[in-house]
Write a protein that binds this DNA or RNA. Structure first.
Lengths: 181, 181
DNA sequence: CCAATATATATCGGCGCCGAGGTATGCTGA
DNA sequence: TCAGCATACCTCGGCGCCGATATATATTGG
């Protein structure tokens, strides 16, 4: 999830670690703050994998910066991850939102629609959070107001997302591929 | 998150590992499946901590079972985690939902309301996912339909949860503490 | 003048999670 | 008869994440 965000942000413009940290924090940090001890090892890993290169620059405000540039390999890797996400990227809301934030970098509307269709299929699977033996339980059955709330909120979210998915998929599938960059 | 779910499920009734796995999978598994290699070490850890005890029983269907019983220490630990959750339990939706699923085990309506108020405070903080320099960007500013969707869905979810939180907090704070068990 | 803060990068130990693999039993259907 | 599946439990290596810690510089405010 972090690696996807790094690839995605660098796809727009080169950034140094500190700036990257601010952007990642804005995107996901409200929900899960990113620690330095997570970010810098990730950068190092990704540099070793050849997805980005580091170039030293004098710091504008203070200490020297290491500017990060996405390589063609990094760009390919970003597109691969967007085109063919793992099951967890589809089902886990945090991961899915991260993917959505950069899905525009997958140039083909048809490919974008295919990814949205996977999320749609996931949301349309029947699910129950709680069981009485083998029988799924409905929200109304709980005296517990918290479990009721849980199901109510989950339902509202999925309705909103479903509506957006249907509308967006339709638009994308009737769109010509843009010239793009 | 997993440990909280284990404590919560065992608070209702003793379970063996396999049954626990089914219940945890129903609660969170749709979003994040739980692996055996995660569950069994967690049980072992928690037994070592004195939160649960294991008792061997002949298997009903096949192999022998190790029944898991929550100890008084385990129950205290559950209540501690429900009463005083970490910031991540409040902000991360997956963790928050898990907490909500067992919040009824915190007997005092006043204490339950206090936990909901923390989530309320979190949701009411102004947030922006994306910045143009230092300026937060609104959904309408994006040509990108995916980032638009992201913000639209996040907004719908938070509206639904906010409504539920306000209603439930009010009810809880005007409730007498139940005799409970 | 000095302390605090923001900028900026990095390492390390610990720990939980995951996937792969291993073991064993009893039922069901080809 | 016997393969396959559901039941039932467990270990291990690898790896990513986290908190603590370290280092260095420029600005801001008391």
């Amino acid at each position: 999830m972090l690696e996807l965000a790094i690839l995605g942000f660098l796809r727009d413009r080169p950034l140094h670690g500190y700036d990257l940290r601010r952007r990642v924090a804005a995107l996901m940090g409200h929900v899960r703050p990113v620690a330095d001890g997570t970010l810098y090892p990730a950068i190092k890993r990704m540099a070793a994998a050849g997805w980005l290169v580091r170039k030293d620059e004098p710091g504008v405000a203070a200490a020297p910066r290491r500017m990060l540039y996405l390589t063609p390999e990094g760009r390919t890797e970003l597109e691969r991850r967007l085109r063919d996400p793992g099951e967890l990227d589809i089902s886990d809301e945090n991961r899915w939102f991260t993917l959505l934030a950069f899905l525009r970098h997958l140039g083909e509307p048809k490919e974008q629609a295919a990814v949205l269709r996977r999320r749609l299929a996931f949301l349309e699977e029947p699910t129950s959070f709680f069981y009485d033996g083998d029988r799924p339980m409905a929200a109304e059955e709980f005296a517990d107001p918290f479990r009721q709330g849980l199901l109510t909120i989950a339902h509202a979210t999925s309705q909103a997302e479903l509506a957006w998915l249907h509308a967006t998929i339709e638009t994308l599938e009737s769109t010509q591929a843009p010239p793009d960059a």
